[in-house]
Design a protein around this nucleic acid. Sequence first.
RNA 1: GGGGGAAUACCAAAGCGGCCAACUGGGACGGACUGUAAAUCCGUUGACUUAUGUCUUCACAGGUUCGAAUCCUGUUUCCCCCA
Length: 430
Amino acid sequence: MNPFIEELRWRGMLQDMTPEIEEHLNKGTASAYLGFDPTADSLHIGHLVGVMTLLHFQRAGHKPFALVGGATGMIGDPSFKSAERNLLDKQTLDHNVSCIQNQLSKFLDFKTNANNKAELVNNYDWMSQFSFLDFIRDVGKHITVNYMMSKDSVKRRLEDGNGLSFTEFSYQLIQGYDFYHLWKNKNCTVQLGGSDQWGNIVTGTELIRRMGGGSAFALTVPLITKADGSKFGKTEGGSVWLDPEKTSPYAFYQFWLNVSDEDASKYIRIFTTLDRETIEALEAEHAQAPHLRTLQKEIAKQVTIMVHSQEDYEMAVKASEILFGKSSTEDLAALDERTFLQVFDGVPQVKIENAEYTALTSILDLFGEISQGVIFGSKGEARKMIQGGGLSINKEKVADPNASINFELLQGKYLLVQKGKKNYFIVEIV
RNA sequence: GGGGGAAUACCAAAGCGGCCAACUGGGACGGACUGUAAAUCCGUUGACUUAUGUCUUCACAGGUUCGAAUCCUGUUUCCCCCA
């Protein structure tokens, strides 16, 4: 029985672990690391699982290392990818590394005076010191190719005929060496990671045994899935990023709010730090009145606040109420301009000259060339949508495409156009 | 190498001289219902337009015909059978 492992277990975050890890963690403060691949200049919500794992580790009194793969990112992990990766150039990589480091610093406690202060490391710092010859002599010598080829991640690539380059093949050695390096220099005895990392991690423990004669441990977290089988963390717009420039706090909040009931129980355990009693109480509440979506709201709240801020959360709630609640034209008109623009941050905008606007004779004309195809590709398309009852302006449904234009402009200059349920556009009359 | 078959819109799949911008299913997009859900039901789905219209489509290039996705010739690709 180890508190950290128990915590992961009831949260459904335990996939696999090496045999003696519990006894090891029970001995006192241990150190563990978890790696992040700098494939982009922001983390996305998939990475959050790793972040939470480290967070629980630190909360259990242990010392977490967040490793950003400045070196491994140059190679590309073959794990469960179907094809060879494109390599990023050094400059992009540097940029990505610093962005990700910056984001990570928000989640773990890097400032505490306690001895389990979180630390940020970059494997480029030690890997870049290595010459190729030194590496293959000092590290490569300890691991056989047979061993490396027996990994599922490599086997799969060999079997499906696409093959993999020597570069990607050697990935597990680099990652394995990271573990050895941290074990040797930072007394880091545990590596945490997603279940797809198991093979790489074990190569690390193997290296530690052979090169250092020591023992080290591994624990993996399951891959996050969705009940309907589609990929977790994706929306029509692509990944859900932690960077507010890439995914607005509003969109971020919405993502969590739209999680299905089946997934909500699972996610609230993984992505929030709420304790077991609280979660079970929320689940009971949710079961009583599923339409209130208690679980989704709580997840969305917790995660939005953790990743963004209290203010961003409140703004997202406000925006959601306006966009999806029973708000009316009056409610819209009552917003001050600042709030209005914040709520509709990221919504596509069209600017129309006042003279042109007043010259329009029918609603349909608004979607002709004057709006540059932003809202509709053509007038015919707009007409169909209006006839299908799918268009609202200022929250009021437009029924007749030929009706004349007679809208109250919000803030004296905006029109809020809604296409379908979730697509909003702002027309600004200038 | 010989013989046979197929190529249709995002996908699958009908059509086999005019009634075909092309049945139907899936997907996508809208609507109703609902919990900003699932299930269900309804509508749209070549383009532009809103007239009861024009234009561009049924592998590609030619041809027959008043008229072709439908017939003929050639080309390309794919599948099957025999060697």
